[in-house]
Amino acid sequence: MDWPFLGSEALAAGVVNRYQLTTRYDQIHRNVYVPHGRSLTPAQKAYAAWLWSNRRATLVGLSAAAIHGAKWIDRRLPAELNQPSQHKTRGIVLRNDTLPPTEVAVVRGLPVTTAARTAFDLGRRAGRTLAVIRVDAMLQASSLKLSAVAALAESHRGARGVIQLRDVLELADPGAESPQETRTRLVLTDAGIRPSHTQIDVYDQRGHVGRIDMGWPQWKVGVEYDGEQHWTNPAIRAADIERQARLEALGWRIIRVSAELLRYRPYTIVERATAALRAAGATI
């Protein structure tokens, strides 16, 4: 059967009996069940929390983001609901915001905050870097425009975290395709050399060479974050070497960023990008 589900409804429909319910399924919230031992995705957590509310609450925050299709949501984090009742339960964060009808939508059959309101909420909470990552994810997942979130910030001037949100909106970029790309962009931005473009398509006489994560096309300087697979998968590594050669033949200078470099030596990323830009003729 589809899951998560309400145990009382499954029993009433005769889909399971009480013995099956208690031996084959885990109760994750009051009356809400999933197959034994299953790990829930953020979207499934959101649906389970909504069932727990007796289908009355609105999904907000990370739960709304998950339903909108945003990626990079930590599975360990709780679901988020907006409802007047504040009866706490494990695994669900309850909020009691006033949500105008214009800030609520139905997505995949569930009541959620609109993409703009979801980004508005995510950008006000957590630290700056995590907030930018989450807003980037919303921009990637939907047709959301930053101007729509800025308009909400203007109409909710007194809301907590709006000052941070304005900073986040200045830093956000729909071109980020991973949290590490966002972090890399922020390292460069904080150093005063924010990339002018993200997801830069490059072509040569043979066709499409590839897409560079971020950089400055004017100076043919690019920055690429390479995930673990770029270092451990032989096929991907071979393709990267070929791609790098084609980019260099076109005059591109590429700064490659690893997890170790980003975490422990971000200053090296800045130094290498600065040196490449100066070598290309940029005045910085």
Rank of each mutant, 00 (worst) to 15 (best):
M1H: 12
D2M: 10
L6M: 04
G7M: 11
S8D: 07
A12T: 08
A12Y: 01
R18W: 08
Y19W: 11
R24N: 12
D26I: 05
I28F: 03
V32F: 00
H36G: 03
T41F: 06
T41Q: 07
P42Q: 10
Y47A: 06
A49I: 02
S53H: 05
L62Q: 04
L62V: 10
L62F: 01
S63T: 08
A66K: 06
H68Y: 09
H68T: 07
W72N: 08
I73C: 06
R75E: 13
R76T: 14
L77S: 07
N82L: 11
N82H: 11
N82A: 10
P84W: 07
S85H: 11
T89D: 00
L94T: 02
R95A: 00
L99D: 05
P100V: 01
V107I: 14
R108S: 14
R108Y: 02
R108G: 02
L110C: 04
P111K: 11
A115G: 02
A116T: 08
A116M: 09
D121Q: 13
G123I: 01
L130A: 12
I133P: 00
I133D: 02
M138G: 02
A141M: 07
L144P: 08
S147A: 15
V149A: 05
A150K: 11
A150H: 02
A151R: 12
E154Y: 00
E154C: 00
E154I: 00
S155N: 09
G161S: 07
G161V: 06
G161I: 08
E170F: 03
G175H: 04
E181G: 10
R183N: 02
T184K: 02
V187T: 13
V187D: 03
L188A: 04
T189N: 03
D190H: 13
G192N: 12
S196D: 13
T198Y: 03
T198A: 12
D201H: 15
D204M: 14
I212V: 15
W216V: 05
K220P: 04
K220Y: 04
V221L: 10
G222K: 04
Y225V: 06
D226K: 03
G227V: 05
N233I: 06
I236S: 04
R237L: 15
D240A: 11
L247R: 08
A249P: 03
W252S: 08
R253Y: 03
I254A: 02
I254D: 02
S258R: 09
A259H: 14
A259M: 07
L262T: 11
R263D: 13
R263W: 11
Y267D: 13
E271W: 04
R272K: 12
T274R: 15
A275N: 07
A276H: 02
A276C: 06
A279Y: 01
A279L: 08
A280D: 00
I284P: 10
